[in-house]
């Protein structure tokens, strides 16, 4: 355990140090890459609560990522075009304030996770995988045919949204925002895993019968975990859309679900810092291999395949041995 804690602190420090150095050397591109790592890691932290702690293999988390993205896109588009979003019961003109956008993103993705989870959790195993995948695709096709908000072309926002007291147009300040949120989410996930709820959820993953015998309802535990998980991934979606100042149906596509899952797995399922390691390695690979070959995803595929077949604990598992963080 000690070694893993040391390693985790090192990863977090590295994520903080790299953009700070890039800031000193005036290299905004590296800061943007680090921001992307922080945001994608946040999405992974969300999925990891369902996947690692709850054992729920959701292949539809792009739905929540995309809903968060569209929450930002819709609010900001109305604000920039001065078209009221609704006039009843009160006049609301959209918003370009990040805290409000985050709140809406979290609530909207949590609501979606509640509905999707309540339906999907009636099943388990391979049915659950396919149904979460199908609901994700449903939203994807809905976004494509929803012409009011850009349809297939997506929505562009001209200026990044505002955060009181900060200049979010400055890359290092926006990175700071995402880094703080990632740290809070990691802290929250760690507390959750140690809480009575987290322990019960983990127990439901290992032995459903025993949890039922002591009077808990696995369905409720899992639904709660799925909602929390979706809400965190939705927040990541809002930040990701703000980073790109663009949201499109691609954020909802099942490739995005697969990628978020890859972050979790590359690092190691159930490891608290697994998503951070996974997202960092993914972005590094994309950047390094993408420079060598247009077809870099072949190498990503081979790496992932090798990982699944031969190194089942993920990168952290390969580095630190097989113990799992939350035991």
């Amino acid at each position: 355990m000690g070694r893993e804690k040391f390693f985790n602190a090192g990863m977090l420090l590295a994520l903080l140090a790299v953009p700070l150095m890039a800031w000193q050397m005036d290299d905004p591109f590296v800061i943007t890459l680090a921001t992307k790592v922080a945001i994608l890691a946040l999405a992974g932290v969300g999925l990891n609560i369902a996947l690692g702690l709850g054992g729920l293999v959701s292949l539809g988390h792009a739905a929540f990522f995309g809903i968060g993205g569209y929450a930002m896109g819709i609010l900001a588009a109305h604000a920039q075009n001065y078209e009221p979003l609704f006039t009843w019961p009160f006049l609301f003109e959209g918003s370009n304030q990040m805290p409000l956008i985050w709140l809406v993103a979290v609530l909207a993705s949590a609501a979606a996770a509640l509905v999707i989870g309540a339906l999907s959790l009636r099943t388990s195993g391979v049915y659950f995988i396919m149904i979460t995948l199908a609901f994700g695709q449903m939203l994807y096709y809905f976004a494509i045919s929803w012409s009011a908000y850009g349809g297939e072309d997506g929505l562009s926002i001209w200026v990044r949204n505002e955060m009181p007291g900060l200049n979010t147009l400055d890359p290092i300040q926006f990175f700071g925002v995402t880094f703080v949120i990632l740290c809070l989410a990691l802290w929250f996930a760690a507390r959750l895993a140690q809480s009575a709820f987290g322990l019960a959820l983990s127990a439901a993953r290992q032995s459903q019968e025993r949890v039922e015998t002591v009077g808990l309802t696995p369905f409720k535990l899992r639904l709660m975990a799925f909602v929390i998980s979706g809400a965190i991934t939705g927040l990541a979606g809002a930040l990701f859309a703000d980073l790109n100042r663009f949201v499109s149906p691609t954020m909802l596509s099942w490739h995005t679900s697969g990628e978020i899952m890859i972050f979790v797995i590359l690092g190691g399922v159930g490891r608290l810092y697994g998503p951070l390691v996974g997202a960092a390695v993914y972005i590094l690979l994309e950047h390094l291999l993408g420079g060598i070959s247009e077809y870099w995803q072949i190498f990503l595929g081979l790496l992932l395949l090798g990982m699944v077949l031969f190194a089942r604990g993920g990168l952290i598992g390969a580095l630190l041995g097989r113990e799992v963080a939350h035991d």
Partner: peptide, 20 residues
Amino acid sequence: RDHLDQVLATFALILIFSEG
């Protein structure tokens, strides 16, 4: 293996096949 490993490995195959 469990379904998670199957999902990941076959997702990796998609990447390899598509880009190939």
